[in-house]
C-alpha cells in the first residue's frame, strides 16, 4: 500500500511542478498579476497560487475497499479531534472500489475497480462568496485532468463532466460539522477511468476515459494529475479571495473571479436549450435557453416568454445536442 501511496505522491509532485504561468495565462492577464509584463512577478503569482493549493493531497489515505470515502473522512475528523487535533485541510481518502456510494438525492453511483473514487476535506476557511465556488473548482480540476488525455470534456453547469454527451464522472459537495463543531467542506469525486462496464440503466448515459481512448490508463498517473489540478483550482480560489479582499470588490459588485472565468472556458452550457429542476431527473420544472452566467456563479436563462431567470441551485439537463 505504501508503494502505491508513494507512486501517487510522486505523480502529484511531478504534475504540480510542471504547472507554469502558461497554465494560468488564459485568465484575464491584468487580474492574474499586477504587472503582467514582468515574468518573475507572474512566476511569483503562480508560486503563491500553488502554495495556497499545496495542502491538497499532502495527506492521502488509500483503501482497497470502502463504504464511502466521505464517511471515512468524517471518521478521520472524529479521530483527530479525540487526539485533540484537527484533520489536516486537503486530506484525501482514496478507495479502489466503493460499496455504499451514492450521488445527490441518494441516486445510485456505481464505483467498481478501475475508476478513481476519492474525497477531500477542506476546512471552512473561505468567505461565503468563495465557498460557493467550491463545486466549480472541483469540476474545473476534473475537466482539465480529462482534457490532458486529449478528450473533449466539457462542464455542464455546475459541475457535470461530459464527454461526447455522456457522463464520465461525478462530483458531490457537502458541508459537514465535525463532532467538535468544526465545519468542513467535503468534495467527493468519481471518475470513470478504466472501468468500462456499466449497469444496463447507465449504459446509454455513461462513458469512461479508457472507453473513449480505446485503451486503459495508468491509474496512479491520472490520480496524480487530478490532485495537481485540484491543487491548482483550490489555490486559484484562495488567490481569488486574496485579490477580492485586497481590492474590496466581490462578485456582488461585479467582480468575476479568476476561477470562475477559467471554469467558463471549460463549460458549454451557454446557448443550450435546457430543462431546469431542483432534482431535474425526478421533477423537471421548466425549459429555458441558457444565456450566460451571473458574476457569483448563477446560471442566467431566458424563458419562453422572453423573461429572464437566474438560478443559484438545482440542476439542468440539455434538451438538444446543439
Amino acid at each position: 500500500m505504501s508503494s502505491y501511496f508513494n507512486q501517487i505522491q510522486q505523480q502529484r509532485s511531478t504534475f504540480l511542478t510542471a504547472l507554469k504561468p502558461g497554465d494560468f495565462l488564459e485568465l484575464p492577464v491584468l487580474e492574474f498579476a499586477d504587472t503582467p509584463d514582468n515574468q518573475s512577478t507572474q512566476q511569483q503569482t503562480v508560486a503563491k497560487i500553488l502554495r495556497y493549493g499545496a495542502p491538497v493531497g499532502a495527506a492521502i489515505e488509500h483503501h482497497p475497499r470502502l463504504d464511502r470515502c466521505m464517511t471515512r473522512l468524517q471518521h478521520l475528523m472524529a479521530e483527530a479531534e479525540e487526539r485533540g487535533e484537527t484533520l489536516a485541510g486537503g486530506t484525501v481518502v482514496l478507495a479502489d472500489t466503493l460499496s455504499g456510494s451514492s450521488g445527490r438525492f441518494d441516486r445510485a453511483w456505481y464505483a467498481p475497480p478501475g475508476g478513481i473514487w476519492l474525497a477531500m476535506a477542506w476546512p471552512d476557511t473561505l468567505l461565503p462568496e468563495f465557498t460557493q465556488l467550491l463545486p466549480f473548482a472541483a469540476g474545473l480540476a476534473c475537466c482539465r485532468t480529462i482534457r490532458q488525455y486529449r478528450l473533449d470534456c466539457c462542464l455542464k453547469w455546475v459541475n457535470d463532466l461530459l464527454v461526447n454527451g455522456k457522463k464520465i464522472g461525478g462530483i458531490l459537495c457537502r458541508t459537514v460539522l465535525s463532532r467538535a463543531g468544526e465545519q468542513y467542506h467535503l468534495i467527493g469525486i468519481g471518475l470513470n477511468v478504466n472501468n468500462q462496464n456499466f449497469p444496463d440503466s447507465l449504459q446509454a448515459a455513461a462513458t469512461s476515459m479508457a472507453g473513449e481512448l480505446k485503451g486503459s490508463l495508468e491509474l496512479t498517473e491520472v490520480i496524480g494529475r487530478l490532485l495537481a489540478e485540484l491543487s491548482r483550482a483550490m489555490g486559484l480560489l484562495c488567490y481569488d479571495e486574496e485579490l477580492s479582499l485586497r481590492r474590496q470588490q466581490g462578485c456582488e459588485q461585479g467582480r468575476v473571479s479568476l476561477l470562475f472565468t477559467d471554469w467558463q472556458n471549460h463549460c458549454d452550457t451557454v446557448g443550450r436549450l435546457v430543462e431546469y429542476g431542483f432534482d431535474v431527473q425526478e421533477k423537471p420544472l421548466y425549459r429555458a435557453r441558457a444565456t450566460g452566467f451571473a458574476p457569483c456563479g448563477g446560471l442566467v436563462m431566458e424563458l419562453a416568454d422572453g423573461s429572464e431567470i437566474t438560478e443559484t441551485g438545482g440542476e439542468i439537463r440539455y434538451v438538444n445536442s446543439c
Partner: peptide
C-alpha cells in the same frame, strides 16, 4: 441547504 450543488445539512 443547497447552493450551487453544494449540500449542507441543517441541524
Amino acid at each position: 441547504m443547497s447552493l450551487m450543488k453544494r449540500d449542507t445539512p441543517v441541524y
